[in-house]
Design a protein around this nucleic acid. Structure first.
Length: 627
DNA sequence: CCTCTCACG
DNA sequence: ACGTACGTGAGAGGT
């Protein structure tokens, strides 16, 4: 046994590192003594790859498991063998209430996988301070929040002089010759600073949850949101655990195909003197060298980035290569061969590195990838997915989604909400004519087009009013809408005026919501009770925040409905307005129907509906792949 | 660490 | 007074 200690925010703490099997009885006695109390839990691991890292390195993924209170902490060296692992698992099972930072999506899943304590058992008695932090303020540091990591949260709510247990360790890693990444696996298990910071993490989490509870009370955070978000977190962690099967033969072949394609197009790119595909400056210079002025039709100068550099993004390159957004020849100008080669090489490079590489790198020993679902990531509460970022796979082409599959007898099911943000807008702003349209089961954009242009409304009218509707949800102006849609400014201006006349409640709601926010220190409380902090100089964004945030909670409700109806075992991924599932072929029709029902309900008198689509075994089959 | 680019809803 | 496109994750390059 090795003892540690110190003082945090004027309150002393003590910690014990179990070094030998003989030290374990004292730990178990401590666990028994603390039954009935809330115990903080944390793990130190080889890294973030719960499902593939340990197997890849042939080591125990969990190195230390820590338990503690506001003043006491224990570190159990799980890495040293079965006896220690069992002690940590026992302590976890015997605890009656747990708290931890990002405990459900990380330590809970890691314990489920490596300690044999189920995610379900852990979730049933856990409070996650990541969740309480995001309910207090969902903004990240860049948007003006204090940051959701344990360090910034502790510095703000516990002790400004608390050591930076993450940043401090990085310095130690560097001194020992490791990097930020390799240090977690490489540092000596009993390194005194490593152990001290591991002990401090549970002490901080324990003190943090008390501060969060006080703060939520002070701010009036709706109490029901706390169990609701913990349920959602458990549901999403369950999807992570299930993961998605990777067709590794196909994926490796695709790797080769994309690699060849990049190399082939790079031959052309090199001929023009461009050595780095990711250097916009080089590309712009080389294009100017081919005699291009880079001045697009209707403009007088090349388009510039925020920092004044000449813009050479996909839009500009597509125009230079005489291609539309479907990569078809337009016939509007002479195609520039460099622009064409850069486009193709860049796409092949991105698709290989961002998607194919990560699938192959992060696949587990059984052939599955397990993405992390950050259930309260965006400042609106929206979820995000990382490792791999399965919410952002290319959808226009089937080839990437084709990599991911169900089990051999399963087929893919995708169920989308229909025009969810428009429906939420109609519900929240109580837009009379929109509500009438949705109640009648109309396509909202055709409805708008016919009310304004009459029965002879055309596809072009619908498209224009769809653009304007999207502009209302994003808070865009005439200029941006015209630029995005390619329609003449005058047409867009007229359409916006007509839109405002037809749906006057939107503008009124926007002004009302902005006023409410200004009166409440730039905080707007959504219909579901979520606190959204507005930027003072972008208060118009409240319409988007309200719609996006409420749409997220509509998806959250649907996920909870699906769990209650026994469908969670089929679910794999939430994608903002969509649920992705895999089910045995023979049950697929029933499961699809049942998921639709879970996504069907009323929101302030507006019907929320969803449509399911069923494909074959691969996700790509929904996008045209034949397998 | 910032900027730019590009993938998604 | 007027108008403002919203939210993410990830890689490459350059400082």
């Amino acid at each position: 046994m090795r003892e540690f200690g110190g003082s945090l925010a004027g309150l002393p703490w003590r910690g014990w590192l179990v070094e030998h099997v003989d030290d374990l009885p004292a730990f178990m006695e401590w666990v028994t003594r603390h039954q009935g109390q809330e115990v903080a839990f944390d793990t130190e691991t080889l890294g973030l790859g719960i499902y593939y890292q340990g197997a890849k390195m042939n080591r125990s993924f969990i190195r230390l498991a820590q338990f503690g209170t506001a003043t006491e902490a224990w570190a159990i060296p799980v890495e040293l063998g079965r006896a220690f692992l069992n002690a940590a698992a026992d302590a976890l099972r015997r605890s009656t209430a747990l708290v931890g930072h990002n405990m459900i999506q990380f330590d809970g899943l890691a314990s489920d996988e490596h300690l044999g304590v189920s995610l379900e058992d852990i979730c049933a008695k856990s409070t996650d301070t990541m969740i309480t932090a995001k309910l207090i303020d969902p903004r990240d540091e860049k948007a003006g929040g204090i940051g959701s990591g344990l360090k910034p949260q502790s510095a703000f709510y516990v002790d400004p002089s608390a050591p930076d247990t993450q940043g401090g360790l990085t310095k130690v890693f560097n001194k020992l010759g490791f990097t930020k990444e390799t240090g977690w696996a490489g540092i000596d298990l009993f390194h005194p600073i490593y152990v001290e910071y591991a002990l401090l993490d549970v002490i901080l989490a324990s003190r943090l949850v008390a501060a969060h509870r006080r703060e939520m009370k002070r701010l009036g955070v709706r109490p029901a949101l706390v169990p609701y978000e913990h349920e959602l977190s458990r549901i999403c962690a369950t999807m992570s655990r299930a993961g998605m099967f990777v067709d590794q033969d196909y994926t490796r072949t695709l790797y080769g195909t994309l690699d060849d394609e990049e190399r082939r197009y790079m031959e052309t790119v090199y001929r023009y003197g461009v050595t780095k595909l990711g250097s916009p400056a080089q590309i712009a210079e080389a294009l100017l060298g081919t005699g291009e002025t880079l001045v697009q039709p209707g403009a007088t100068a090349p388009e510039r980035t925020d920092n004044g550099a000449i813009k050479v993004d996909k839009n500009v390159l597509l125009w230079l290569a005489d291609l539309n957004d479907k990569w078809e020849r337009v016939g509007g100008r002479k195609p520039n061969p460099l622009a064409d080669a850069v486009l193709h090489a860049k796409r092949a490079a991105k698709w290989r590195t961002a998607y194919v590489d990560t699938f192959l790198e992060q696949v587990d020993a059984h052939g599955y990838v397990h993405p992390t679902i950050n259930t309260l990531q965006a400042r609106t509460g929206r979820m995000s997915v990382t490792g791999p970022a399965l919410q952002t796979l290319p959808s226009r082409d089937k080839m990437i989604r084709r990599c991911l599959m169900g089990d051999p007898n399963e087929v893919v099911i995708s169920c989308d909400f229909s025009a969810i943000e428009m429906r939420v807008l109609a519900a929240l702003a109580d837009v009379r004519q929109m509500k009438r349209a949705f109640a009648a089961g109309e396509d909202i954009h055709w409805f708008t087009a016919r009310l304004i242009a009459g029965e002879g409304a055309t596809e072009y009218d619908r498209k224009r009013y769809k653009t304007v509707g999207l502009g209302k949800i994003y808070g865009g102006g005439v200029a941006t809408l015209a630029r995005q849609s390619g329609a003449p400014k005058e047409d867009v201006r007229r359409a916006v005026r007509e839109y405002d006349r037809l749906y006057p409640e939107i503008k009124r709601a926007s002004r009302r919501w902005q006023r409410e926010a200004f009166d409440n220190g730039m905080v707007f409380t959504t219909a579901t009770g979520r606190r959204l902090v507005l930027d003072r100089d972008r208060s118009y964004a409240i319409v988007n925040y309200a719609c996006q945030s409420t749409a997220r909670d509509v998806l959250g409700q649907a996920l909870i409905n699906a769990d209650k109806n026994g469908l969670l075992k089929y679910l794999r991924l939430p994608i903002h307005d969509e649920m992705l599932a895999f089910a045995p072929r023979k049950d697929a029709a029933d499961v699809a129907k049942a998921i639709e029902e879970c996504m069907t309900f009323g929101l302030f008198g507006v019907p929320i509906i969803a449509d399911a689509e069923t494909g074959k075994r691969s996700w790509g089959s929904l996008y045209g792949a034949d397998f």
